[in-house]
Design a protein around this nucleic acid. Structure first.
Lengths: 214, 214
DNA sequence: CGGACAATTGATTATGCTCAATACTGGTGG
DNA sequence: CCACCAGTATTGAGCATAATCAATTGTCCG
């Protein structure tokens, strides 16, 4: 397949996203769905926790803010994924729409049943996976882990369309925007990826990338 | 209070541990309890997952091993804490007793009910907390986070008895043993902690340490 | 077209890693 | 009881990776 333009590429990446909602739950149609504009807050760090959310469309970032302004993104949530679990009475992080998103809201009081166990386990698995990335991988490896994870969750293995900024990626991977940018430039220079635009990435050498992170 | 010897200190730290099982679950007395010697394997990375475990005594480390030998410890589990959740069919990490430990075994098939939700959420919260530590803290801060967390979970706020090696701590915090050792030496030099022995630590300036990590 | 934001690239600095040597500790056997 | 030994921990010197500081370039909107 040959791709002529960035526009075509973006369209392909978008198509690949559809129908890959691995963790979709059977939520009753009664659950209200709320729409959020790009950048809009869903809930804040410290807010009273009482709802659980399922992403229906778009993308949501979960992040913690330190007193000195440092930010750590805990997760990017994509369609079908669930967020908003709180062990104590309040949320420990912010939830914000990255792009225009729609989110189903569930009342935790009535729905805290077995169906949430698999969502919780998926969330835990992701958090533990990120511990591996943050604790024992170099900058380059973290970037590759991120790209492959995003590609995977978007369905297509060869095209990734990022809706988040370099700053978001940096705060997710525990790096700086400069290091993220340099890492991508390096992968491009080595012929492992192609940057159709800053946010549209083609994975040229999937296996080579997979080997980089074992 | 004045402490005369390391031996006395260790005894104090041990006493502080008792009666602080914050997450103890009402498990039926039918659940078999297994004892493991220090260093003994409870389950391995890749093993078929079918059980959930509650620590009754001692300490357990959960860790992932990379193909190239790098190790990342995901959690240290103390009495009352639950481990062994698997999102897919197999465990993604090793579970090993650090010291002589006893562990209650639960059949996941029959017990996957609401009582596990709070355990899962606690586990998730811990994993996300560790994401913050690994992603956005310096070596010194990671060490302080670790010491305060351990002190907290042992009940006493001023004495910590570590049952793990520097290597374990390093693999938990994404550092090397040298950096861990240097960090502790620095805290000691600054009068914030006292090292009664390598494994017995007295927290001299609790508030100063707490301020270091906000 | 212009402005604001986002991304890239370069030069320098600093944090933490690697390599290396030394000290400590606890357990074992003479 | 003490000497020895292996595993554990500490400390030092130099180096590498990624952060910081700084300057451009690119891109999306109005």
């Amino acid at each position: 397949m040959t791709i002529q333009s960035n526009r075509e590429f973006a369209a392909l990446a978008r198509i690949a996203k559809v129908g890959n909602h691995k963790n979709t739950f059977a939520t009753s149609p009664v659950n209200p769905v709320t729409n959020y504009a790009a950048g809009e807050l869903i809930f804040g760090q410290g807010d009273h926790a009482g709802k659980i959310f399922t992403v229906k469309g778009g993308m949501v970032r979960l992040y913690h803010l330190f007193a000195d302004g440092r930010r750590q993104i805990l997760a990017f949530c994509m369609p079908g994924e669930v967020f908003g679990f709180a062990a104590h009475g309040t949320y420990e992080f912010f939830a914000e729409a990255i792009e225009d998103s729609s989110v189903a809201v569930h009342d935790v009081q009535v729905s805290l049943t077995e169906v949430w166990l698999s969502a919780l386990k998926a969330h835990l698995l992701a958090a533990q996976g990120q511990q591996l990335v943050l604790g024992r991988q170099y900058a380059g490896e973290r970037l590759v882990s991120f790209l492959l994870d995003m590609a995977n969750r978007q369905g297509g293995q060869h095209y990734v369309e990022l809706s988040m900024t370099r700053s978001d990626i940096a705060d997710y991977l525990g790096l700086t925007i400069e290091t993220v940018s340099r890492g991508l430039s390096r992968l491009k220079k080595d012929g492992l990826i192609r940057l159709h635009s800053a946010r549209c990435i083609e994975i040229s050498a999937l296996e080579a990338l997979q080997e980089m992170i074992e």
